[in-house]
């Protein structure tokens, strides 16, 4: 799996595992399919999507990813931003 350096433009996978069965997802719906910028890696943590079901969990890189507010919500005009913790497998280079 690729690792992302600070400053890398990334896209959150547009995926809805909720539609395929019981899941525990820590990637909020409002960033799926959206582009942001990696602020910094936060370390590696066991995948909560497996931990929640007591399955063996891979240890995955976690990133702080910054999104422009205007890229997320149609009505926003302010130059504010949202920073979200996202696990590596949810990200692809944009």
């Amino acid at each position: 799996m690729s690792e992302f350096a600070p400053g890398t433009r990334v896209r959150v996978r547009l995926d809805w595992p909720e539609l395929r069965g019981p899941v525990h997802i820590r990637t909020p719906h409002y960033v799926r399919g959206r582009e942001g910028t990696v602020l910094r890696p936060l370390g590696r943590f066991a995948n909560p999507e497996d931990l929640a079901f007591a399955r063996p969990a891979a240890v995955l890189p976690l990133y702080h990813v910054r999104f422009e507010q205007r890229a997320l919500w149609p009505e926003v005009v302010a130059a504010d931003e949202v920073v979200v913790e996202i696990f590596g497998p949810w990200l692809e280079a944009a």
Binding site: R26, L42, G43, P48, A78, D80, E81, V82, F87
Partner: peptide
């Protein structure tokens, strides 16, 4: 002033 909202979604 820019606002940076931090959504606490995972391990931190």
């Amino acid at each position: 002033t820019r606002i940076r909202v931090v959504d606490s979604t995972a391990d931190y």
